[in-house]
């Protein structure tokens, strides 16, 4: 039982990071129907920028509490990623708005390769470790333990998700976003500037990615120029699992994927009598994904769209 609770907690923490990244995928997809393959790399850049700032601050010997230093790192990462997201959309996607659908997919892959290699040139090939500045407290919960970092990650993601939901459902900008997602032309007739909305969508998604990047590097204590790839892949899977284009779906998908993964890793050995070990954790996640999509072809919360005539 305590193993179950422990894996559940780990899964929820991991899942909430996936969910934040997945939101970025799903928002862009909802409006442009574009898989923004470079989104995982934006997350990585966020982690790298934050770590650089944090390491510099720690190295300069400023007398600040660890949490403040981490926050300063985050505050540097968010605008950097926002600018990056804005630039990517401007340079790589906007010129291809009316091109065949797979063309922007290829530029997205190109951007992803460029960002990865730029990061490698700037920060090197080695793993960068997160300085031990954050509180290392552990708390007991239902027979399992939860760390301070985990609690912060959970709370932050919940707050961000709530904020985003309110923004999309309640504000003028959110309404413009939803309108553009339904029909850019009609939204344009109603006075919505589709280009601005799309830019803002990218900027918001990138800000979330920055937060996710910092959280994941704080959680694992590491960052690496290649970390965005797998994280992006998982998050994209999560977005599809929940029903791509659907905000609540991305959150649900992310949490579910995280929980499935960690429970799978914890129990797969027992299920198969020790035949398959925890190294099959990813298989488990993808298998569930495929199974869900076979029975619900448009994801868990994705609307069932009729066949297009």
């Amino acid at each position: 039982m305590d193993i179950f609770v422990q894996q559940l907690i780990n899964g929820l923490v991991l899942g909430s990071v996936y969910a934040l990244v997945a939101l970025g995928y799903t928002m862009v997809y909802g409006i442009l129907e574009l898989i923004n393959f470079a989104h995982g790399e934006v997350t990585m850049i966020g982690a790298m920028v934050a770590l650089s700032v944090i390491s510099a601050l720690v190295g300069s010997g400023v007398e600040l509490p660890g949490v403040v230093i981490a926050l300063l790192g985050l505050l540097a990462a968010i605008p950097a990623c926002m600018a990056l997201g804005f630039t990517i959309e401007r340079l790589a996607y906007r010129p291809l708005r009316n091109a065949p659908r797979l063309a922007p997919l290829i530029t997205a892959i190109g951007v992803s390769i460029v960002l990865q290699n730029l990061a490698m040139l700037i920060w090197g090939r080695q793993y960068i470790s997160f300085p031990p500045i954050l509180p290392q407290g552990r708390h007991q919960l239902l027979g399992a333990s939860i760390t301070d970092v985990q609690i912060v990650i959970l709370i932050t993601s919940v707050v961000l998700m709530l904020g985003l939901t309110i923004l999309v459902k309640r504000t003028r900008l959110g309404r413009a976003m939803r309108a553009t997602a339904q029909s850019p032309q009609l939204a344009g007739l109603m006075g919505v500037n589709a280009n601005t909305v799309i830019s803002l969508t990218f900027v918001m998604g990138s800000a979330l990615a920055a937060v996710a990047g910092v959280m994941v590097s704080a959680y694992y204590g590491l960052a690496h120029y290649y970390m965005g790839f797998l994280l992006g892949l998982k998050a994209f899977s999560a977005a599809v699992l929940g029903g791509i284009g659907n905000l609540a779906g991305a959150m649900l998908g992310g949490l579910l994927l995280g929980v499935i993964e960690s429970l799978g890793a914890g129990y797969i050995g027992d299920f198969t009598g020790g035949f398959l070990g925890s190294n099959y954790q990813d298989v488990f996640a993808f298998f569930v994904l495929i199974l869900v999509l076979v029975f619900r072809p448009s994801g868990l919360l994705g609307e069932r769209v009729g066949e297009r005539a």
């Binding site: 129907e33 898989i35 190294n279 298989v283 993808f286 994904l289 076979v294 072809p297």
Partner: peptide
């Protein structure tokens, strides 16, 4: 199993399939 899936849903399932095959190849030594 993917006949009903379209577009990007199909993409992610095929991607998952590819990864599953690779992970199995990577781990089928024990």
């Amino acid at each position: 199993p993917t006949l009903r899936l379209r577009g990007d849903y199909l993409a992610i399932v095929t991607l998952g399939f590819g990864e599953i095959i690779r992970i199995f190849l990577n781990n089928l030594n024990a």
